[in-house]
Amino acid sequence: MKKLLFLLLIGFSFASAISQNYTISKKIKIAGDGGWDYLAVDDVNQHLFVSHGNVVNVVDLKTDQIMATIPDTNGVHGIAIANDLNKAFISNGKDNSVSIINLNTFELIEKVAIDGKNPDAILYDTFSKKVFTYNGNSSDATVLDAVSNKVIKNIPLGGKPEFSVTNTKGLIYVNIENTNEIKTINATKLIVTATWNIAPGEEPSGLAIDLVTNRLFSVCGNNIMVVVNALNGKIIKTLPIGEGCDGAAFDAKKKLVFSSNGEGTITVVKEENENLFSVLETVQTQKGARTIALNKTTNQLYLSTANFGEKPKPTTENPKPRASLVPNSFVVLVIDKK
């Protein structure tokens, strides 16, 4: 009996330790019925940039009110914030361009056409002061000089690029979705310097980095997170995550990795040290909330989604139909500690 009681107490303690610490603290309602992709936080000014149809909504995070709407971002995917240059760079997938916006006035500085097709994820690298757009339909990256706004070069990537991060020391990392790889780019020479296979990870999308331990966190379409040594490409660990992931974020203060999963969950992974990782909890969010942004000042997380109607039955003409969006139901979820 004592042994059974001891085991029960151990089980209770373990369950308490992994009980849900994060929850939806509020929802920021945004008008409009367009689709969505990435979000980005301007930590300096505490503004949230939300891709939304053919516009970008800017939310004042001090009041949760819409303070600006940036128009003419046709097929918008991503937003990269460059506080040192007072600019935001927005990738417009349908017209193969980048909109460059003043961070104070939200006015258009310039719209730059690129040769790459369907620019999706976008990254600003403070080390090189360059912007990298990752072009899904041409399997390459377009590089812009973030100071002059001029296109410098296209870098072939040999596959469909997804999210990207920088080590802030001259090396860029990007997930290649259809080849199950991470490629590294020298930010000065603008060449691919390494290609790392991340099997058993398949269809990698979101990517995050711990700059202290040099660990990459790649979330993959087959429901696993692959932890990779950013110095040599060695796989350190694989962990289970939810279905339909598309985003990842890393909280450097708390040593937590977040995978946003379209099924309506966030998988939270704890980094104990550079070689020890474990799933801490699964946070319930809302269906469709597949991309994520971290506020490094408040440690809050933001995910955008909407309500869905019934999914049509498959037909010969449309074998994989999508459910329609419920009108005027678009929101940003704010995830916080309980």
Score class of each variant (00 low, 15 high):
N96W: 01
Q286Y: 13
Q300R: 09
Q20I: 07
F14T: 11
E110R: 13
T285I: 07
K111R: 15
S25F: 06
S218F: 02
D336N: 13
F6I: 05
E181F: 05
L256G: 01
A289W: 00
L211W: 03
T133S: 14
M1T: 07
I28A: 06
K237R: 14
P156Y: 02
A15V: 06
V131F: 06
G233F: 07
T69N: 14
A249N: 11
T126K: 10
G242M: 02
V219K: 00
S97Y: 05
I66K: 14
C245T: 14
A194S: 15
T188A: 01
A82H: 03
Y124C: 04
D120P: 12
A249W: 11
Y38S: 14
F258V: 09
K160S: 11
A252G: 00
L211T: 13
E274Q: 11
N21C: 01
L280V: 02
A194N: 15
L103F: 02
E271H: 08
D251M: 10
K2V: 02
M1R: 14
L4K: 10
L301E: 08
N86V: 01
T166F: 01
V143P: 00
L231F: 08
F250W: 01
N74F: 12
A306Q: 13
S205C: 09
T213G: 02
P327C: 02
N102T: 00
W196D: 09
N92C: 15
C245M: 06
K338T: 15
I335E: 05
H47G: 00
G32Q: 08
N295M: 03
G262H: 00
N92S: 14
K29P: 02
V44K: 13
P204S: 07
D246G: 10
P71G: 09
Q20G: 14
K253E: 15
Q46H: 13
P200I: 06
I266G: 07
S97K: 03
M67C: 12
E274L: 07
T316G: 00
A249Y: 09
T297G: 11
D145C: 06
F89H: 03
M1A: 12
T188Q: 08
N299A: 08
N214I: 00
N74E: 15
I224D: 06
G136T: 14
N318L: 07
V147I: 12
Q20A: 15
N54P: 04
E243K: 15
K183N: 08
V76K: 07
Y173F: 15
A230R: 03
A15T: 05
A248H: 04
F49K: 05
R290I: 01
G170F: 04
I292A: 02
C220M: 03
E162C: 04
G116Y: 10
K153T: 12
Q46S: 10
M225V: 09
N74W: 14
E203C: 00
S139L: 12
F49L: 13
N229E: 08
V41H: 04
V76L: 06
N307T: 12
V283W: 10
P319V: 00
K3L: 13
E281A: 13
A121R: 09
I292R: 00
K255C: 11
T305P: 10
T316D: 10
S128E: 04
I152T: 01
Q65W: 01
K189G: 00
A88G: 07
V58S: 08
I185S: 02
T69W: 10
S51T: 15
V228H: 05
V59S: 04
S278V: 03
N229K: 06
D251R: 09
G221N: 07
L8K: 09
S148F: 08
V326E: 14
D115L: 04
S324T: 13
S218V: 01
